[in-house]
Design a protein around this nucleic acid. Sequence first.
DNA 1: GCTTGACCTCAACCTTGCTCGAGGTTTTAT
DNA 2: ATAAAACCTCGAGCAAGGTTGAGGTCAAGC
Lengths: 156, 156
Amino acid sequence: MPDPSPPARFLSVGEVARRSGVAVSALHFYEAEGLISSLRSAGNQRRFPRGVLRRIAVIKVAQRAGLPIRRIRAALAELPGDRAPTADDWRRMSTAWRADLDARILELTRLRDQLDGCIGCGCLSLADCPLRNPGDRLQAGGSGPRLILAEPADPA
Amino acid sequence: MPDPSPPARFLSVGEVARRSGVAVSALHFYEAEGLISSLRSAGNQRRFPRGVLRRIAVIKVAQRAGLPIRRIRAALAELPGDRAPTADDWRRMSTAWRADLDARILELTRLRDQLDGCIGCGCLSLADCPLRNPGDRLQAGGSGPRLILAEPADPA
DNA sequence: GCTTGACCTCAACCTTGCTCGAGGTTTTAT
DNA sequence: ATAAAACCTCGAGCAAGGTTGAGGTCAAGC
């Protein structure tokens, strides 16, 4: 085996766990989900290329941003598995995620502003409160006021 | 039989579902979780006071803000079940939620700014990248994943 | 007075992102 | 050579926030 003083080219799952702060079970899970991949030793133990640490860092950032595994997998699939990612690789990925982040931030900010506007007004009970009609979702109805306060049964 | 013109004082679960846009099963769930409550008819069917619609509106807003059921239940517990909530009731509740929203918005915004600063730099692989060391160790990832506090990332 | 639809309870299942344990093998240290 | 630590697979379980279905009851219309 190679001597341990220079950084080993491959890492065991335990080392990756220690260095990344991610549990071994999570690494197994990530591999099963296709977020990371490994070679196997003669005895069937995982051997991760060092680049896996960077991939895991990416995964953690993406999770902070609230992205689901599917999206992360899709993004990572664009990154090269062998060579180090180029600046362009990062840019594409982070740009896509920025859009997600922007959308989430915008929604929360709008909600907060509406909450501010509604503080103390109690208008949640009214049909025209912006908080109650986030996306202008108006249920289609026949005739008459078909908002929250409609009385008769009105099956679609 | 009661004439249907004046709004009935009590609503069946189906009516509440229709008017609130929440599934009957979810209403059962909310009741089991203590978010809403009902009386029962002679035949054991749920009869909701009209105020339940407002409570459900509150629940939906809180969920948009990303609050877990526990927090929503705690907030609703402060609201009067019988009389209509006062302006002060709303203010207390929305103020508390605003703090949550602010925190979430702040975290996402910071993440976005860091992502901008790191676009193309590839520095995720380095120990001093701000994205890799959020400073605050709070990285609860939504629902499901447990809180994993930072371990010493490669101190040796 | 019967049929239909809305309602009841309770239990099982779903999805996401993992963790935990059993039972067995490999690697490492002495 | 051996003991301990690390690793393997596979299945079950957890937590949140519900949905779905079975089996049975209630209420309303004709």
